[in-house]
Every structure is written in structure tokens, then in C-alpha cells.
Nucleic acid binder design. Structure first.
Lengths: 123, 123
DNA sequence: AGGTTGCATCAACGAATGTCAATACAGCAA
DNA sequence: TTGCTGTATTGACATTCGTTGATGCAACCT
């Protein structure tokens, strides 16, 4: 539970230019694939959106678990994967654990996808 | 091999408001997860970037396969998954098959991720 | 101290995924 | 026609993934 800066946005790693800019090296592909794989599950997507759409920016696990018809260990597992992917982070505060999204990571992925066809080329 | 309009960009489906806008329903989550899952593999990410970064917009399979140290059926399989995810499309032209990216699909995913923290809130 | 609640980890299972060799199909060329 | 080349499909395999019940750990409350 690292409790990092909660990045407003810009973080180092200008990184890859976007899907339509260059053929993408093996390392960058492996790095991005980890993040996208974490997004490739409906439960994790819903968890992430529940966390990211929260006004205070934080959500207690005790609010996330009952929102799904899944066991508590399963939700905990998905939260762990999202955290390992660098998309969210968490902190224990007394009895409860709070999660928040890391916008820098999400914007990095968005920037990678966005650069597809800036203007109009085909047709 | 549908050969659709090769959308310059805008396509119906304004769809979901973005990860930070709403808790995301089950259907939307399942739909988005399919696309993200397709991006969750390094080989498919490299394939997609090779296709999307092509000037003419099209790439022959005969150029994609030798770029990887994988068997031809494996590459064909990954291309099929990308196509089923709606991220690319293809057309047979004589002996060869050409693939191109579908920017509308990529931009839809980017739009979903982008809306995370527009300005600066945390820290 | 003991008891209770919230969350994480462990061990195990079926299901899905990535990969390949073998095969099938489509189009071109003699 | 027969043969050859490019691509897709099939069948099989090892690995990974999603899920759960059982268990462990941390923090609160008597």
C-alpha cells in the first residue's frame, strides 16, 4: 500500500507515441499489455469505474464487495490485480481499506489509443 | 471480411461516459472488457500498432507473420481475435489478405479512459 | 484477555488462453 | 488438370485465469 502522490496527471514516462505512430517494441508492448489485460475483465472494469467515479476519490472495500454477486476473496483478488497493474492504489485506515484510482496510468493508456487516425485518411 | 466504411472516426455509439463518470453497468463493462482483453497481449498490441501505423492504412499478412518468432497459425489466431474485438478488419485481395485498423473502436476505448481526472484534483 | 468484524492470502478446481503441427481452403500459374 | 503459395481452421497440449471455501492477520470493542 504505497500511498504515492495520487498524481494529478503528468508522470515521467512520456513513453510510447501511440498505436498509430510506431510499430511498438517488444518491451513497450509487454508493459502496455499488462495494463490492458487488467482492464480485460468486466468485474475489474466495474470496480475501476466505481473507484474512479467517486467524488472524494476514495472508496472503501466494504462498499465495493456487496456491489457484486461474488465472494469477498474474489473481489480482493481483482483489486490486487488492478493495483499490480498500477491503475489503483490503496491505504489501510483503521479497520477499513480505501482504494483510489491513478489517473496518470489511465491517461497513459488513453493517449496510446487516442492517436489512431488524427484526421481523415482512408475512404 | 466485411469491408466497412473504414470510419474516419465518429461512429454511432456515443456510449459510456468514461471510467470516472459513472459506475458502469454490467453490459457496458462486458462489452468494453472484450475489447480491452484483446489488447491484453503483447503480440496483439504489436500487431495492432504495426497495422495502425501503416501509411496506406493496410498491411498484408505476409508482412506481419515474419515480424514475429511465432508460427503462422498463431499470428492468424491473434489477428482473428483482434477482428472479433472489432479493432481491425480485413479483406482478401487475390492471394493475399490485407488488414486495417478501425480508429472508431480505438477512440471509443480512449474516450472511456481519458475522462479520468480532467484537470487536477488530488494532492 | 476474549470475541467480532474487515480484508488478504492460501489451496484447489474448472474454464479459458497461447502455442504449435497437421490439415484444409483459396487463388495463381503452368 | 496438377502443383504451388498464402492464409485460415482444427486438434491437442501446457499455462494462465477466475472463482470459491478455508484460513490468517489486523483493528476495533467489550
Amino acid at each position: 500500500m504505497s500511498k504515492q502522490g495520487r498524481g494529478t496527471d503528468s508522470e515521467g514516462e512520456a513513453c510510447c507515441q501511440g498505436v498509430a505512430s510506431a510499430p511498438l517494441g517488444e518491451e513497450q508492448a509487454a508493459d502496455l499489455a499488462k495494463a490492458f489485460k487488467a482492464l480485460g475483465d468486466p468485474v475489474r472494469l466495474r470496480l475501476l469505474s466505481m473507484i474512479a467515479s467517486r467524488d472524494g476519490g476514495e472508496v472503501c472495500v466494504c462498499e465495493l464487495t456487496p456491489a457484486f454477486e461474488l465472494s469477498q476473496p474474489t473481489i480482493s483478488h481483482h483489486l490486487k490485480l488492478l493495483r499490480q497493474a498500477g491503475l489503483i492504489d490503496c491505504e489501510r485506515r483503521g479497520t477499513w481499506v480505501y482504494y483510489w484510482a491513478l489517473p496518470a496510468a489511465l491517461n497513459r493508456l488513453a493517449a496510446f489509443l487516442r492517436s489512431a487516425e488524427p484526421a481523415g485518411v482512408g475512404a
